[in-house]
């Protein structure tokens, strides 16, 4: 039973909650194939109208950034306030630019 080869593969589930919004990661599940993964995702993650569309992808196919590189990847953005609109002070009479 604990033969890992007989465990159904793991899938990551992404759900679009309503038209116009992004698919959002909501969890994972085991399923033998993609059709079953969709079916199960529907039962596990959308029992209360949480979704209008589902994506599933094999977990092993996801490539993720390394948490150890969090600093070098994301900290450079910390000191670039000029990338935000609020950095620029403009006269009030411009209203909402």
């Amino acid at each position: 039973m604990s033969n890992p080869k007989n465990e159904w593969p793991l899938w990551e589930v992404f759900v679009r909650s309503k038209a116009g919004l992004d698919h959002k990661h909501c969890g994972s599940l085991h399923a033998a194939d993609s059709a079953m993964a969709i079916q199960m995702a529907r039962d596990v993650y959308t029992r209360r109208q949480e979704g209008t569309s589902i994506w599933v992808v094999r977990s092993e196919q996801i490539v993720a950034s390394d948490p150890a590189e969090k600093g070098s990847l994301f900290e450079p953005a910390d000191d670039k306030v000029y990338r935000h609109p609020t950095f620029y002070e403009l006269p009030d009479e411009l209203n909402h630019m």
Binding site: M1, P4, L29, V44
Partner: peptide
């Protein structure tokens, strides 16, 4: 029926959370 189905769903959310820690579903079932 809906409630019992929810409990099954809750079990699945939780197994998936435990699996992120590096334990397999089969190990837990076992």
């Amino acid at each position: 029926l809906a409630k019992v189905q929810d409990e099954g769903g809750h079990g699945l959310y939780l197994y998936a959370a435990a699996e992120t820690l590096g334990t397999s579903r089969d190990e837990m079932t076992e």
